[in-house]
Design a protein around this nucleic acid. Structure first.
Lengths: 156, 156
DNA sequence: GCATAACCGACCGCTTCAGTAGGATTTGAA
DNA sequence: TTCAAATCCTACTGAAGCGGTCGGTTATGC
């Protein structure tokens, strides 16, 4: 499995927030009930989203969470990365300060890391899929009927 | 991390087999030494590759492993899948008998699984990257000099 | 001041990962 | 025919992450 339920639940949570029309905050409890997910586990996940600046919170009674930006401006790579940590195909991949992806096996002596080409391509495919999908798309997808959905999937 | 070291080690192992020119088998011990990987762990991995029909083995002295097919005909999705199990972005994804990918949250009541669109796109990106890369490419990549490599990565 | 909600940290059972260990079987060669 | 090299197989282990629970603290509206 590429991702755990952290990404699954967290994305569901984000979509649920994106569904709300008004600007008043939505309590985690209502999200948990709507999506049938454990409240106390969602608390951990939403904390990651908040620290990543994807949602804002208001405390106290009638408090809750709302999106920090319009759903159209939220790319899913940011959401998944906030929940799962850095999206790298392999342990040895890490972001260098300059933003490039490196492989720590690079200096292996006679021949360079033979897997780098493969993982670079995989990472490219994943980030392209994630960054090319906005939260607004998912919200719309979830609200419309089945026939429309089949077409949307291939429009990546 | 999308994949574990099982895929990393296993792919390295396959590349090492692909590097060998002749048709005589290569012992796991020599692969372990060349790639600096624990022999007994490689035994587990190569067993998966063998069961998947990607390598063949000859037992006894001077025995070892070799590729079951020419490297040009080995697509990396088969290799990674043999090592890691089915390549699905999320637990709820599974292959139906007809070969289509399904999501077990599909019947969620009022609105369909809001994450399906996203995970379908991710899976598409990954499988495209893996299936579009052959073992032969990795072998060649590992044998050539650094400048050539930068170009190869973007040629996914 | 009370209910509601966000926040925070500790804990727990479970599974997987990465690796080890020990043996058995097969085979070529001395 | 015996030995060494190799595949093959099963069981085990420590560590880490996952999925989730729990108890408590803080902030806020009514």
């Amino acid at each position: 499995m590429l991702f755990s339920t952290k990404a699954e639940y967290g994305v569901r949570l984000m979509v649920e927030l994106g569904r709300q029309p008004g600007s008043q905050p939505v309590s985690l409890g209502s999200v948990a009930e709507a999506e049938n997910l454990p409240l106390s586990y969602l608390e951990h996940l939403v904390a990651k989203l908040r620290k990543a600046g994807l949602v804002t919170s208001t405390r106290g009674a009638h408090g809750g969470y709302r999106l920090a930006k319009p759903a159209e401006e939220i790319q899913m790579d940011a959401v998944v990365e906030a929940l799962e940590g850095q999206i790298a195909p392999m342990e040895c991949f890490h972001d260098s300060p300059e933003g490039k992806v490196l492989c720590s096996h690079e200096s292996d002596g006679d021949h360079a890391c033979s897997t780098k080409l493969l993982w670079m391509r995989v990472q490219g495919g994943v980030t392209k899929a994630l960054a090319g999908t906005t939260l607004a798309e998912l919200v719309e997808f979830s609200e419309h009927s089945a026939p429309k959905r089949a077409a949307a999937i291939s429009a990546a």
